[in-house]
Nucleic acid binder design. Structure first.
Lengths: 193, 193, 193, 193
DNA sequence: TATGAATGAGGGTTCATTCAT
DNA sequence: CATGAATGAACCCTCATTCAT
């Protein structure tokens, strides 16, 4: 009976859950694995989390908050909106690349309804950041007058789609630079005088 | 003991599997449900499919092919590349909207490795279509000289991300027109004379 | 995989459940024991009964009906009400004696609320039989004009209390004759002229 | 670390156990509940009671003794045996009504063998009281010469059965008066001259 | 080709009990 | 005297798969 502080144990469990859910997915992961990986007994898991779902949801929430904080921070102080977009995308993709497991855990369970509200909130926040950048770009005259909400949705979708490629097909050859380039300049040729 | 042709039975099972997997997801769906929904016995399922995984994979393959055919067909005969992009996106999103279940079934199981090769092939085909359009656009002088592969990836990612929004958050308010607009013209203001 | 008819299996399970619940009580009995005793697999239990509670309740219902039928039958054709009371009591107690397990299974679970409605119905029926006898006795002038419902309750309570003694304290020395005697004649001395 | 005297703590635990066992029954009640209700730690429980069974048995013993004392006291000084019977029944039923939980706790666990000896002793004492009353009644010429032991058993059974009705079916409409009436006078019509 | 009763390993969860503090 | 984190065996139940019919 190894005595540890409650916080210490909770952290160990969350870390173990991260490892196990990442490797096996929610459905195939089982509480015994997580307990073993956390160096705790099965019963111990239930001291800190109501059940498997609670454990997974708590994990997702905590990791999502970390993720959101890190990405938001990255664009806060950049004045050039084009550069901000650039960096936001790059940060996102790189972060995703380094934390594939995170996205894996968020994967669909129960037809995606699992932790839906939490995800919506997170996604909403991310979109908000992009909207802010676009708005500043328009106000500064750098960007043309697009529909801010829609444009943000599109950019957010690119990121989301890219992340899926990284996670699902392990396509690590994405190019943030080319991506920004397309978003900023579009496909059409300019000054076709 | 309902006598039916093998093909008929197989089709009935696949349709039932579609319904059940869509509603419950792979993990929660069980063979009894599928059998009942198909109006066949549990044992009968195993006459046509080796096991649950085989059934699901076969289903995904068949539906993906249908999906690919329908979307590709839609852009074949459009000469204006900008319009082709436009239509390709619209078709994709609308198709996704009408066939949410399809994407649900493709959701991650076993850490996304489930049917991975099949998916890669499908995604590759889709990206190929976009590449074709862009190439024609560049050759025609309509599009500027972008990195074709990367641009196709970006556009494909947008679609993928949008589909996720539709399926996961039931965000049906996407605007294909605004999306195409951004892709075609980009964010930056032009002719800054 | 021993094939048996569904009805045969169900019966085997109910008999096994009777044995196990009787010996261990509801809480201590476990499904594995019942399965083993029935010569069936654990999963097999769940083909016929939704869960442990359903199995126990079904068992109680079936055994109660048998019990009720047998006891009621016994008094149907007896014309002398005093004799009918006599026999009803005797039959009840003897039946209880021979089927201790039955009452054991009915024992309190979940604060007696377990199968409460079923029990109430059964008890109501039993009380009804006694009421019928008393009524006939009064109409025939054999019995004095007592409150029929209350008197039936009292007699039913005697039986119930006696059965408890038999089951709990294994007091098999009850005397149905003395019991009837008291009920029929009462304690008070008569004709105290 | 609340400092309390041992006796105080023990009493608090017993009271909590009463509440919890009454509400949930022995099997569903758990030590955590009792500890919480007693305002003590789980480990603290084991300072005063060897284990769950010991706690429950101790509780039953203590409450039974209280119960026995109160009921016995009630008939001690009544000279008319008919009235004593009357009052003994009434007291018993009313007491049961006010202390349903007590009987609930005594409910069967482990096939009634739980605390059996203790119960037998308690029941024996109660029957003894009734025997005493009947004996005095016979000696006084008020009662006819019945088999004292058997008559006491019958009366005790009535009470027991009635209590079951109260506890199990929540039948609070019992009538002690009618009950005594039947016991005293019996069913048969008298002076059929 | 078709059935569906049967299997049994393995899942999530509970809880009496212990013991380092 | 008192705590409460930790244990782990054992519970109920599920379900992919098999096979005698």
């Amino acid at each position: 009976m190894n005595k540890r502080s409650g916080i210490e144990s909770k952290k160990r469990i969350l870390d173990a859950a991260m490892r196990i859910f990442s490797e096996y997915g929610y459905a195939k992961a089982n509480m015994r694995m997580i307990a073993k990986s956390a160096g705790i007994s099965i019963g111990g898991l239930y001291l800190y989390f109501k059940n498997k779902e609670d454990l997974c949801l708590t994990l997702m929430k905590s990791r999502m908050n970390d993720f959101a904080d890190k990405t938001m921070e990255a664009v806060r102080d950049i004045s050039d909106p084009a550069e901000a977009i650039d960096i936001f995308i790059e940060m996102n993709l790189n972060y995703a690349k380094r934390h594939k497991e995170l996205i894996l855990v968020q994967g669909r369970e129960h037809g995606f309804t699992f932790g839906l509200e939490m995800k919506k909130k997170f996604f909403g926040k991310q979109r908000g950041v992009i909207e802010g950048i676009i708005l500043r770009g328009i106000q500064a005259g750098t960007f043309r007058k697009v529909n801010v909400k829609e444009a943000a949705k599109v950019i957010f979708s690119i990121i989301r789609g890219f992340i899926l490629s990284i996670v699902v097909e392990a396509d690590s050859l994405f190019s943030p630079a080319e991506c920004s380039d397309l978003i900023l300049k579009g496909l059409l040729r300019r000054n076709v005088k």
